[in-house]
């Protein structure tokens, strides 16, 4: 009985964390290259609606997931062209991306509201998933959950252990110096931005295909922004971002369960994730960790190679 509820709650936490993890781990790479894309919310919604619509139409969740990643990347390409080629302000363009994403996803999804979608198949890992408690929690999730963790591990390895990862970090720290060393600043920033868009799209797809299998206008309800905060919280490091994402998933599930126990208006509990984000951001910027906040030095600064 207790085992069952532990399994139930832990699985729910993992589910609630996964969309955040996808989006945040993608944005992490983007920001490490020195680009600040505030359009995560819009790209997640794009992924959510495209993933949902494709799955419903074709009946194939795999196609849906691929389409969601492509849609997120496509939207981030708009951002890349505007900010990297046309030198538009990154903050303003990111906001535009979110406003546009909310609108276009609602437009595309208007025919899909209220439709059912087949749930993502659980990917039970043989033997391990039969372990008590740990089995179903860690080894009985759907494929996207594993993918999000793999992507986090991949990001950590890429940034720390590969030559290309080092170049990416150099570009984020000082585009000017990286350019003088002959590194392709703009090309790498393009690729990083596209990757971030695809990851946000996957996060959206997880939301509309697994977490709450349906499509609803604006269904991300601020998760894209929370993901942005998580990157700061994780001080631009993949594993800390993962820890942050699971912490926030925990807060989300906690508030859902607390609603049944404590008798306060439901909205009070719904406020918690947002208030927690503000509290955590403040703590991380004000606390003793302050000196170790390692924002890429060139984050958000436009760079145009001299011709």
């Amino acid at each position: 009985m207790i085992d069952e509820s532990i399994v139930h709650i832990s699985s729910a936490v993992i589910s609630a964390s996964t969309p955040l993890l996808f989006a945040a781990t993608g944005e992490l790479i983007v920001e490490r290259s020195g680009v600040l894309n505030l359009g995560v919310e819009g790209m997640m919604l794009m992924g959510a609606v495209t993933g949902f619509a494709t799955t419903v139409t074709t009946g194939s969740p795999v196609l849906g997931i691929l389409a969601a990643a492509a849609a997120g990347a496509a939207l981030s390409l708009v951002f890349a062209v505007l900010t990297l080629t046309l030198m538009a302000n990154q903050v303003a363009t990111g906001l535009a991306l979110t406003i546009f994403g909310i609108g276009i996803s609602a437009l595309l999804g208007s025919g899909f509201v209220g439709q059912p979608v087949p749930a993502l198949p659980k990917l039970d890992i043989p033997v391990l998933s039969t372990l008590p408690v740990i089995g179903p929690v860690l080894f009985g999730q759907d494929g996207l959950v594993y993918l999000s963790v793999v992507m986090t591990a991949g990001s950590a390895w890429f940034l720390k252990r590969t030559h290309t990862g080092m170049k990416l970090r150099a570009i984020g720290e000082s585009a000017q110096s990286a350019h003088s060393l002959g590194l392709p600043v703009i090309r790498m920033r393009y690729l990083a931005t596209l990757y971030g868009g695809a990851a946000a799209g996957l996060g959206g797809a997880f939301l509309s295909l697994s977490y709450t299998p349906m499509w609803m206008e604006g269904m991300t309800s601020g998760r894209g922004w929370i993901a942005l905060a998580l990157v700061v919280f994780g001080s631009w490091r993949p594993w800390r971002v993962l820890a942050g994402a699971y912490l926030f998933g925990g807060v989300t599930i906690l508030q859902l369960h607390a609603q049944g126990v404590v008798h306060l208006p439901a909205q009070v509990f719904s406020m918690l994730p947002y208030l927690a984000t503000i509290a955590v951001l403040t703590a991380i910027s004000a606390g003793p960790w302050r000196g170790r906040l390692t924002a890429p030095a060139d984050l958000g600064k436009p760079f145009r190679p001299p011709v």
Partner: peptide, 20 residues
């Protein structure tokens, strides 16, 4: 669909930033 208004507004900001 009502959402078209949001699409228009977003597009307008995109083009504006591009034209800048």
């Amino acid at each position: 669909p009502q959402a078209a208004t949001g699409v228009f507004q977003g597009m307008l900001l995109f083009y504006l930033l591009a034209c800048d």
